[in-house]
Computed example of a mutant assay.
Amino acid sequence: MRISVPTIPIRATYPPAPYRTVQNATERVAEFLLPGNVAILTGAGVSVDSGIRAYRGHDGRYMNPNYKPIFYHQLMDESEAGYAYRQRYWLRSFLGWSMIRAAQPNPTHFGLAALQHAGVAPRLITQNVDGLHHQALNIPPGVKNQHILELHGSLHHVHCRHGHVVDRITFQRWLSEQNPEWQAFAEETERTGNKLRTNPDGDVAIEHLGTSYANFVVPQCPSCFLEGRMNSVHKPEIVFFGESIPDLVKKQSFRFVEEADRLLVVGTTLATYSAFRLLKRAVELGKPTLLLNVGPSRGDGVEQVERIDMASGLIITDVVKSVLGPKALVEPYRQMLASGVVKPPEDDTQPAEVSVAK
């Protein structure tokens, strides 16, 4: 089986988006949104101001050159080799979960939430698995909502291969109880502020620590044990590389685009085809499509797509104020547009020195 990680050209193949000032970009995005009934598609760039690092930098390159994702068939393999893959995945995810759980919505999340609440953009599709769009609308992460479609799933639930589901906080407790040395390491890094590089899927980079995954214990499923079998194959409710998006999710994503009059794409390179095909579908249907993103993307070669090369956080609050007009001054919009953290990830190109369990 050969499965490749989706990429975009390292160097932009197409001419860059026309230069725009912040004011001009604000006016154009507001103008695009004003007719209403807009579908929004978001990616990892939307959560950067919340402290969750995007996979790719401004030039489209992976910012962690050692990034090697675990594929679906590897995670679900019941052999000894599969258990080793799960040790690697769950150790890194165990260490990264606190960062994801602690993350708070930023102004882009709240701005888009205000557009949803006002009915300007009633449907939102996100590739992100962090639950921050839900939080901005005061919906608990992991709770299904008919107006927010998590295209690639959510980190907030875990299920075993036999379908038993637990919330992530419970599963994190299981991991902690089975791995006290790694719990102590996590507490030490939190205490000292030596945070690890966290990817959008909650995975952390620990290659520089020179550690082994061999001593990490992946817990057995208690429900399976009560049913008379041993099973340590657990998977977060996210779509892995090499795994197909559930058919119902795929159909709903197309329906969101088809029921809208236009599509706004925010903070994504569209490297995964599950997202890119939604842009293609909007174009096929003749719907105006605007891409707001920093750097090159897979959508650059689609002639009908209007592009603005700018971070959404620079303009989104003023965009929404312009679209909502006087309504922006009353609740809940006033509070929404005054909310949001702005804590982008620190430059960690030189990893901090930390001790590690062996």
Score class of each variant (00 low, 15 high):
V5C: 02
P6Q: 13
T7F: 09
T13S: 13
P16N: 12
Y19D: 15
E27P: 00
E27D: 14
A30D: 07
L33D: 07
V38F: 01
L41P: 01
A44M: 05
A44I: 08
V46G: 04
V48L: 09
D49I: 04
D49E: 15
R53S: 14
R56M: 08
Y62R: 09
M63G: 12
M63T: 12
N64W: 11
N66D: 15
K68L: 09
P69E: 08
P69A: 10
F71I: 10
L75D: 04
D77W: 03
E78S: 15
A84F: 12
Y89P: 00
S93W: 09
F94G: 02
L95Y: 01
I100K: 02
T108Q: 06
T108A: 14
T108N: 01
T108E: 04
T108D: 02
H109Q: 12
F110W: 05
Q116F: 00
H117F: 12
V120L: 03
V129L: 03
D130H: 03
H133Y: 02
P141D: 12
G142W: 13
V143Y: 04
L151Y: 11
L151G: 01
H157K: 13
R161L: 07
G163A: 07
H164N: 14
H164K: 14
V166F: 12
V166Y: 13
D167F: 11
N179M: 09
A186Q: 08
E188P: 00
E190Q: 15
G193E: 01
N194P: 00
R197E: 14
N199V: 03
P200N: 06
D201S: 00
G202S: 06
G202L: 07
H208F: 12
L209H: 00
V217I: 15
S223A: 15
S223Q: 15
F225H: 14
E227P: 04
V233L: 01
H234L: 11
P236I: 08
E237P: 02
V239E: 02
F240P: 07
G242W: 07
I245L: 14
I245Q: 07
P246G: 07
K250H: 13
K251W: 06
K251Q: 15
F256M: 10
F256S: 05
E259F: 01
R262G: 09
L263S: 05
L264G: 02
V265Q: 11
A271C: 04
T272F: 03
A282N: 11
A282R: 06
G286R: 07
G286P: 12
N293M: 06
G295P: 06
P296E: 09
P296R: 10
S297L: 04
R298D: 00
R298N: 14
G299E: 05
G299L: 13
D309T: 05
S312Q: 10
G313S: 14
I315W: 00
I316K: 06
D318L: 06
V319W: 03
Y333N: 10
R334P: 05
Q335G: 10
V342M: 06
D348L: 09
T349Q: 10
T349E: 07
S355Y: 03
A357W: 08
K358V: 01
